[in-house]
Design a protein around this nucleic acid. Structure first.
Length: 368
DNA sequence: TTGACGCGCATAGTTAGGAT
DNA sequence: ATCCTAACTATGCGCGTCAA
């Protein structure tokens, strides 16, 4: 039994093509790293979360660390004694996506850091994102209509739901509450020898998993409110293959991509621009009340509102083109860190407080 | 005085439809 | 084609009421 819990395989990712890569900086620069199922350990500087295997059905928990010589990333895959080459490839691809380890990302990083020495000195330029396009879109949708704390809670509940789905909801009366959960348990069809030993882990749900359940369950179980309908529709379309990333990447420009994203229900300007940032297109700054607050507070643009924020961001960040978004995010991250300390050292219990609006509220109270 | 409760308002981003 | 605005809906907060 003890042998089962200590099962662990090790993978390595060479970093010779990414000489300035720093795991702590690559992860702790965007609120998404605080969202379940991501776990950052400030004491060990290790990042842990489940990733999908090549079958896209089963998940394994992995812990990523960067040994002191910095020349590679160590990926520890828990609960697996041996891993097929396809699974290794799938895991590495997801890690590369999250950490921005691609020739295109590296080229962007260097161009961005050449704009101003401060970006290079701070090691800033890689925006952490999800291991899949689907998770990026859904998490961006979770940012709407609610507080940051609520977004964190919804992500956590989606992961709880995924855990129950992977354990077979049809057997779980506590969560069905008579609502007729009909989802069939996924039966692994690939690599039976490698998946046989996989223990259930609590991952972010896949499009297939969300498409297979009733929207009301999604709404009630995860407290998604009106987002449930949009996320469910997106999951169904995604599962049908409507949003294959290859199709998106064929777009000639970020503007074309933006128009495609805007056609997704529940995906407005803010969500679309946030997703574009995750996809490595940095020209449009996502504008929400937090952006407005930042422009008012940090840039002294008191006249800034949601209506004129787009024009103001063009004035302020235009000179950073095509990396306006990175420049904005750099400022925002620094603002948070002056308020709350280094994000990479923040205990997870305090993640919910990381918003500028709460700073503003606190400051205004202090000023009164 | 305190706590529970309910109501109304403000807030948030997206959507849809009308105006320019 | 673009801009503007009301409606939508979940959530949080403030306030008033009532009972203990």
């Amino acid at each position: 039994m003890t042998k089962k819990t200590t099962l662990c395989s090790k993978l390595y990712m060479p970093l010779k093509d990414y000489p300035t890569f720093n795991l702590e900086k690559a992860v702790c620069n965007h609120g998404f790293f605080m969202m379940a199922p991501n776990v950052w350990d400030p004491s060990t500087k290790q990042f842990t979360r489940p990733l999908r295997l090549a079958d896209s059905v089963n998940s394994v928990k992995v812990t990523i660390s960067q040994p002191h010589d910095c020349s590679l990333l160590l990926i520890e895959v828990h609960g697996m004694e041996c891993i097929s080459d396809l699974d290794k490839e799938a895991i590495r691809a997801q890690v590369a996506r999250m950490m921005r380890l691609s020739p295109k990302d590296e080229k962007d990083l260097q161009e961005f850091q050449n704009i101003h020495p401060k970006f290079k000195n701070m090691g800033f330029g890689r925006i952490f994102c999800a291991p899949s396009f689907f998770e990026d879109v859904v998490k961006s949708m979770l940012l709407c209509f609610c507080s940051w704390q609520n977004s964190l809670t919804m992500a956590k509940m989606l992961c709880d739901l995924q855990s129950e789905l992977s354990n077979g909801l049809e057997d779980n009366n506590s969560c069905t509450q008579g609502k007729g959960l009909k989802r069939k348990r996924n039966v692994p069809e690939y690599f039976p020898e490698s998946t046989a030993k996989i223990q259930s882990v609590r991952n972010f749900p896949s499009a297939k998993e969300l498409a297979g359940i009733d929207v009301e369950i999604l709404k009630d179980h995860c407290k998604l409110g009106l987002r449930a309908k949009h996320i469910h529709e997106f999951a169904k379309d995604y599962h049908r293959g409507r949003y294959r990333l290859r199709n998106f990447e064929k777009c000639a420009s970020h503007e074309e991509l933006y128009q495609k994203l805007m056609k997704i229900k529940g995906c407005g300007a803010y969500v679309s621009n946030n997703v574009l940032m995750c996809l490595g297109f940095y020209e449009n700054v996502p504008i929400d009340t937090e952006t407005v607050r930042h422009l008012q507070e940090v840039h002294g643009r008191k006249e800034c509102t949601l209506r004129n924020a787009k024009a103001i961001t063009k004035q302020i960040y235009g000179s950073f083109a095509p990396f306006q978004c990175l420049a904005f995010w750099f400022e925002l991250t620094r603002f948070y860190e002056t308020k709350f300390g280094r994000l990479s050292l923040l205990p997870s219990s305090r993640y919910g407080i990381v918003t500028g609006s709460q700073c503003g509220r606190k400051n205004s109270e202090e000023n009164e």
